[in-house]
Simulated assay, not measured.
Amino acid sequence: MDDVFAAAERFLRAEARLLEQRLFDTLFHDAPATGVVDALRGYRNADGGFGHGLEPDKCCPASLPLDVEVALQTLVAARTTDQRLLAGAAGFLQSVAVDGAVSLAAPVIESYPRAEHLSDWTYAPGLNPTAGLAGLLYQLDFAHPWRDAATRYCWAALENGPPPEDVHAILEVFGFLAHVPDRDRADKQVAVVAERLMTASMFHLDPESDGYGLTPLHFAPAADSRWRSLFTEAQLNGHLDHLLRAQQPDGGWPLAWAPPSAAARLAWRGMVTLQALRTLDSYGRLRR
């Protein structure tokens, strides 16, 4: 591996959570995915959901859909599954859903340290995160009544209203459209949602854009991503070049927002560093 990878591995070994270390070993050192599942269990609650800061922008032990989403994303990344974890997670989502939709968070976070942007807007059920969660359950091939209800909600929201304006909601919708089985129905929505993406306020098509935002690499994080074709190769290469340059002297990647604590900052840096390695490796930017 080149120095980019070696420096990132040193950072992950020194600063990342056990979960990201186990996932790194599975992805890059052929370790069994059982270690990832074992680490995930530490964040699971008796209600089947996940909490305990699995998504580190709130230091809240209670189960929240935001944490469930990180758990499902981790299983997808590790290319593994666990029926008991998935059944519990889907059951939790069903218990907090309103007409199939779930919210990112809940007022319980107000009793704990949290990032400034996590306020009462996150208590409203919507496409963010319902669409992304449903898409992940399709990706994991896990059928459940909540997935069916969430799918009905997502189709109704997409077909009977304008596309979402928030770039994060658009990302969630693309996760749904990538994996929902009804391809004809999904394909009809892609052009509309993609057009909205290009004008979203926090979408950074220019790799030199300042401040926090999502980039083409969030929508096409791997070379075989379904949505790679939404962007030109020049655009993707510009963001890959920028991603390489962004590596810090300690080997990790920086954040563009303020987590609620020093531990949360390190947790997030481990997550974004591992994602940077995955993306760079997939696009052939890491030498082996």
Rank of each mutant, 00 (worst) to 15 (best):
D2C: 15
D2N: 12
F5Y: 15
A8N: 08
R13P: 09
A16M: 06
A16S: 08
R17D: 11
R22S: 05
L23I: 09
D25N: 14
D25V: 06
V36I: 06
V37M: 00
A39K: 03
Y43F: 14
N45Q: 14
G48K: 10
G48C: 08
D57F: 00
L66Y: 10
V68F: 05
A78P: 03
L86M: 12
A87I: 02
A101C: 01
A106P: 01
Y112N: 05
R114P: 02
R114S: 01
R114F: 03
W121L: 09
Y123W: 10
P125T: 05
P125K: 07
G126H: 04
L136W: 03
L137W: 00
Q139P: 01
D141P: 06
A143G: 15
H144W: 01
H144E: 00
Y153N: 04
G161N: 13
D166E: 12
L171V: 10
R183K: 15
K188H: 12
Q189E: 11
S201Q: 14
Y212L: 15
L214V: 05
S225Y: 03
R226T: 15
N237D: 15
G238C: 09
H239M: 05
D241A: 15
H242P: 00
H242Q: 15
H242A: 11
L244G: 12
D250A: 07
G252M: 09
P254H: 02
P254I: 07
L255S: 07
A256P: 00
W257L: 12
A258R: 14
A262W: 00
A264R: 02
R269N: 01
V272T: 11
D281F: 12
D281V: 15
